[in-house]
Design a protein around this nucleic acid. Structure first.
Lengths: 245, 245
DNA sequence: ACAAAAGTGTTACACGTACACCCATGA
DNA sequence: TCATGGGTGTACGTGTAACACTTTTGT
């Protein structure tokens, strides 16, 4: 039966309006899983809720979508309002629509995720968020709503993704060493890689520009710095990768 | 600013309720992209809308979610009501939340997709659907709402998916030949495979049980029939595949 | 000189690709 | 016996994994 029209029933316009109305009492929210990397641990940007429900709990930055707002746009607005992060690239992850997932009404949430350089953006709590901070993914306290589940889905999505296309540069500073990139991959996937083979594989993609710079003040041979090449990346994206591991 | 609480403002409970109310006028719908395969063409199950808006247009089976219904459950109910298909495995695809995507109000839709054996289920229009039929994916007329876009996303999702894990058996009859499976892969990906290599790759996964049966009444050497092994599949799913192409 | 991490080369092996060839059936 | 598609074996090149080795810095 359509909520808009059922040809078998002759309803007055008013009655039809009212019946239809019951289908329009949903709230839509967005929640953002923002991944960062501090050099050794994979982290997530979490806020502390300064309002009910779940006041005082850790939560993902998220809030209700405005009636005249695209959900994609809402994700950017909400993230900015609660954590001060500027417009970044957010990708839709999954939608959570269980009836009982929100204690104060029927709220379906659309989850987004992103990867950013942790040293580039300092989160500042805004709106009703009493805190906004980076937390290592394995040290997050009990989360509000079904946010723990959302983080789970986001992590497995990230793991799958990084094995099939060369994302991950977004998590590092603009100039980085190959060892740092390897540490990142190992942190996300929870595995170890052979140094020589990892280098060969990464460099074979031709996505990194070697710089004429090296590290300084390290008590061993300084490593060459590299930079990510976004043009080459978008070129490869169109043709499709053959990337694995 | 939270829709639930803004500590900076002292609102009466009634005023707060009313303000909050404006955030709860969304409709949620589900839309289903059901893929089938007739032996040569990849097809999609489409309905013809027997009600406004977009009356007479081709559309995906989809409708509004009930207030007390999980979105996952709604996808099954709606598909069944409109096309007569029984409960099948539907997987969430993507959520479309543009403000202007529905002409009669703010409706955010969650799209689902599935793969089924086209010969196993005969669609029968129900509810407000005036037709329900299989249509080759490249012969679909103009679709209602943003459904053409949803089909695009579903197809590219399917293509990506089938290259990385061995789905596709769902689209064939229970017993099938390797040539039929190869035709299916070629139809989905729009490419050609070497017969010998395709066989080796597929059989190396140990997902197919060879049967002691062959084709009949074909004017060439009859092909051996195979059956998909669901147990082995779920075993591999947990360990993670190393599947490519 | 030593420790520590950067960076490279070599080898053995697995795997994908291409292609040629044989097999079983109906007409 | 021919056409048709089923089915298999092999040889070659590429890519991956494991591991040893050299290089460059700070102390």
């Amino acid at each position: 039966m359509s909520a808009f029209h059922d040809p078998k029933q002759a309803l007055t316009l008013a009655a039809e309006r009212e019946r239809l109305d019951s289908f329009f009492h949903f709230g839509i929210s967005v929640d953002c899983v923002v991944f960062g990397f501090d050099g050794s641990d994979l982290q997530i940007l979490v806020i502390e809720r300064g309002a009910n429900p779940f006041q005082g709990f850790q939560a993902l930055p998220g809030d209700l979508v405005h009636p005249n707002e695209d959900t994609d746009a809402a994700s950017l607005r909400v993230l900015h309002d609660l954590t001060g992060l500027p417009d970044i690239y957010l990708e839709q992850l999954h939608t959570f629509g269980r009836v009982d997932r929100h204690p104060m009404g029927r709220v379906v949430t659309v989850a987004y995720y992103s990867l950013i350089d942790i040293r580039r953006y300092a989160p500042k709590p805004g709106g009703w968020a009493s805190q906004a901070q980076w937390v290592p993914i394995d040290k997050i306290a009990t989360m509000a709503f079904d946010h723990a589940r959302i983080v789970e889905v986001a992590l497995s999505h990230l793991q799958h993704r990084i094995r099939h296309q060369p994302i991950g540069f977004e998590l590092l500073t603009e100039e980085f060493t190959l060892a740092q990139l390897q540490l990142l991959y190992e942190a996300i996937l929870g595995t170890q890689f052979d140094k020589a083979n990892f280098r060969k594989k990464i460099l074979a993609m031709n996505l990194l520009q070697p710089l004429e710079k090296t590290q300084h003040a390290v008590r061993h041979r300084p490593a060459r710095l590299y930079r990510f090449d976004p043009q080459r990346y978008s070129l490869l994206m169109e043709r499709g990768f053959a990337f694995e591991l």
